[in-house]
Design a protein around this nucleic acid. Structure first.
Lengths: 161, 161
DNA sequence: TATTGTTATACTCTATAACTATA
DNA sequence: TATAGTTATAGAGTATAACAATA
């Protein structure tokens, strides 16, 4: 019993062992989400290896992703990463030691340290983002009709969020 | 320059700072993927907190997810997690200490140890899977028409994979 | 007083290398 | 010899608590 197959006895295609959130969820949202869930966890599983292509840990990859739009206070980064501020110190220490980011004291509030990418950091981030943006096989193999529909659906969903 | 905005000057709606993989990617797959990417990374960001609801680390949550379908050799689990076998020892030590899983020596090959969920482990896994299967707000808010289309598209994609 | 970032500490996750017990 | 799992070790990610500098 996994507490998730209730309320439906419709037959379900068995997917690889990775998931058994059965597709027979009660409603339409559950059905759609269960299928997306599959794609999503495949991506999560591959993310460390993807980051490693750039000699980054998964968290370091997230940091570089966040650091695209100009300077960011360390506390803001901690909030984005949903982690304690004390972690950001060590995280930034290591990225700074590699010459990818720099700490700059804010002039408005001298407690605050702003993070900016170095040139090397920006270059690496560019390659990382391009890699992240490359559609995985499952997406690349979709017919144009489905891709256009998917794009339009996701546009609407993200807009009304 | 992030190496990703090339080849298109169509106007793009700015989303929250979390991503700047611009939506104007060259082709349909890039456009669709970029939008899915947004949803996906929100989920990844929330995953540790979600696991913590059950007093599990993210990896422990993945282990419980994998351990649904009967016994699993430790080496198989290491493969699923894409990590070294030595990690699985400690990982399983902690889950076993909490009474969630058990090691059982295989009778065919006495080198192999099979992992099985205890009753408590299965119960916890059930609640975890139900939680994971609950559609996030962005999905829950979609109109039925979009949900049905999304479900059908993802069914086709996962089937032809 | 409150906030930003750091340090100290402890635990988990991760990889590598050396070891054991089986095969 | 090769494989499954363990142990030892080291580095990175995480949280909590105590602290310095600044507001």
């Amino acid at each position: 019993m996994n507490g998730f197959s209730d309320g439906s006895s419709e037959q379900v295609t068995r997917r690889p062992a990775s998931t058994d959130v059965s597709e027979g969820g009660s409603g339409l949202p559950e059905q759609a989400w269960t299928l997306l869930f599959e794609l999503l966890h495949t991506h999560m599983r591959n993310f460390p290896a993807l980051a490693a292509e750039f000699e980054l840990s998964p968290v370091q990859a997230h940091v570089l992703r966040q650091l695209g739009e100009g300077a960011l206070a360390m506390s803001t980064l901690a909030h984005y990463l949903s982690c304690d501020a004390s972690n950001v110190t060590g995280l930034v220490d290591r990225l700074e030691a590699r010459g990818l980011v720099e700490r700059k004291s804010s002039e408005q509030d001298r407690r605050v340290k702003m993070l900016v990418l170095t040139e090397a950091g920006a270059e690496l981030r560019g390659r990382l983002m391009a890699r992240l943006g490359a559609p995985p096989p499952l997406i690349a193999a979709m017919p144009d009709e489905d891709l256009a529909a998917l794009r339009d659906i996701m546009r609407r969903a993200l807009k009304t969020q």
